[in-house]
């Protein structure tokens, strides 16, 4: 893969920082999201909460539906393909998607291999629960990482767990001595050069967002304070009482995540949040897909 393309793809993720990426299922929702201040939208047929409710196999969305959303907004448009389903990814590249999410929200197409993302010109974002997963995805060519969280639940606990795990493992790598990095690479099951990068820079080599279960401005602020560089909001917006107001409030909360007074104002009168399912009440843990 030409390095230049990979750099441009990492750089697009840098432009999304401090922003909110919202799940949308129609051009109308995409317009609402853009107006509310989304820095990108994720085009999909069903939001995670509905995928969870419907069960069965969930796949890449209809390209025509994605095109409708591309035509409706000027911000970047992302779309999901199944883990390991490189043919779906090729289709998304063919319609010039701005970012592909190789996502555990959809049913995995391959239970061993992820997509070799170095074969693509379009960028990929992938989910991770810990540093090993994050660096394996980056090694495969992902140019952006997000926590897996537990999509479609409105329960932020898993996103918090994954972000804390990632940050604490980064801090550990940063502090160990150089001759210990070889064994760290072995333990994490990742190449040495990526381990060395984290050791020297104290961060992932790509942008890292929070995702999965974010439903309120406070959730978004929590994830930002835990080290996220931006936030994906899936079901949390269009499953709530007042999507426009909630979306705009979450956007502002991500900008001023360190200002409790402003967060208090933003949290007022938002209407009903998505009902949510507690993580202990669900049978399917999407975060366990693809490691």
């Amino acid at each position: 893969m030409p390095n230049e393309r990979y750099n441009l793809n990492k750089e697009l993720a840098q432009m999304l920082k401090g922003g909110v990426i919202m799940d949308v299922t129609t051009p109308e929702q995409a317009k609402i999201a853009e107006k509310a201040g989304a820095c990108a939208v994720m085009a999909l047929e069903r939001i995670p909460a509905d995928i969870r409710a419907a069960g069965g196999v969930s796949r890449m969305s209809d390209p025509n539906m994605i095109r409708g959303i591309q035509n409706a907004v000027s911000i970047p448009v992302m779309a999901k393909c199944r883990i390991g389903h490189f043919a779906e990814a090729q289709i998304l590249e063919a319609i010039e998607i701005d970012y592909i999410d190789e996502s555990e929200v959809l049913s995995p197409a391959d239970d061993v291999y992820h997509i070799d993302k170095t074969k693509f010109k379009v960028p990929f974002v992938c989910g991770a629960k810990d540093l090993g997963e994050a660096l394996r995805r980056i090694n495969e060519g992902a140019s952006m990482i997000r926590t897996k969280g537990e999509p479609g639940t409105g329960d932020v606990v898993q996103a918090v767990r994954h972000m804390r795990m990632l940050q604490s493992e980064i801090r550990r790598l940063k502090s160990i001595s150089e001759d210990e990095l070889y064994d760290a690479a072995k333990q994490l099951q990742v190449p040495y050069d990526l381990v060395l990068y984290v050791h020297e820079n104290g961060r992932l080599p790509v942008v890292n967002f929070a995702a999965g279960g974010v439903a309120t401005p406070a959730d978004a602020a929590l994830m930002m304070q835990l080290g996220a560089e931006g936030v994906f909001v899936g079901s949390g917006i269009f499953k709530s009482g007042n999507p426009e107001k909630r979306a705009a409030a979450i956007v502002k909360a991500v900008t001023n995540y360190n200002d409790p007074k402003m967060l208090a104002e933003l949290s007022e009168d938002l209407g009903e949040a998505m009902v949510g399912i507690n993580e202990s009440e669900i049978e399917l843990l999407m975060a366990e897909r693809g490691k």
Partner: peptide
Amino acid sequence: PGGESTVMGKLLIDL
């Protein structure tokens, strides 16, 4: 800076 102009433009008004 760089980013999304629609987002920054909206936040400049909202804030």
